[in-house]
Simulated assay, not measured.
Amino acid sequence: MARVRYFAAAAERAGRNEEHRPETTLGALRDALSREITGLAAILPKCAILVDGARVADTTEIGPDVTVDILPPFAGG
């Protein structure tokens, strides 16, 4: 299962900092998170989502050795 890490407001909305997920593509992960975590669904479209540190397409396969980081927009300067 992919390791998913939530940061800042995404962690607050998800109610956790990290979890392991069974989805096999980034798109499936986005869909599942939007359905299952309603608070996260509101900000997920605005978040940067990185797979092993890089932005990738929703069709990208994710597996057990992958880390997905969900980073909401940060304010300040």
Rank of each mutant, 00 (worst) to 15 (best):
K46P: 03
G77L: 11
D65Q: 04
V68Q: 03
I49H: 01
E61R: 11
L50S: 05
F7V: 07
D52P: 02
E12K: 10
R35E: 15
A42K: 13
V66A: 14
A8I: 07
R3S: 01
R21L: 14
G27M: 10
R55T: 10
I43T: 09
P72Y: 03
I62S: 00
G76P: 09
L33Y: 10
M1W: 03
I62W: 04
P45M: 11
V4Y: 07
P45R: 14
P64C: 00
V51M: 06
L33T: 12
T60L: 03
V51K: 07
D58P: 03
R21C: 09
V68A: 01
A8C: 12
A8P: 03
V66R: 15
P45I: 12
I43Q: 09
V56R: 07
A28G: 12
Y6E: 05
G27P: 01
R21N: 14
R3F: 00
E36K: 15
A42R: 14
E12N: 13
F7E: 07
A41P: 14
Y6I: 08
D58N: 09
D52T: 00
V66D: 15
G76E: 08
E23R: 00
I37R: 15
P45Y: 12
A28N: 11
A75T: 11
G39W: 14
N17Y: 08
R21D: 11
E12L: 10
K46Y: 13
G76I: 12
A41Y: 12
G39Q: 14
F7W: 14
Y6T: 06
G77P: 02
V51D: 05
P72R: 09
A42F: 08
G27Q: 11
V68D: 02
G27Y: 05
A54I: 13
D52V: 01
I49V: 15
Y6H: 02
T38R: 10
P64D: 05
T38G: 09
E12G: 00
Y6D: 06
T25V: 12
D31E: 15
D52E: 01
D65I: 00
A28R: 13
G39H: 11
V66K: 15
T67M: 04
M1F: 05
R13W: 07
L71Q: 03
P72W: 02
E36S: 15
T59F: 01
Y6Q: 06
L50N: 06
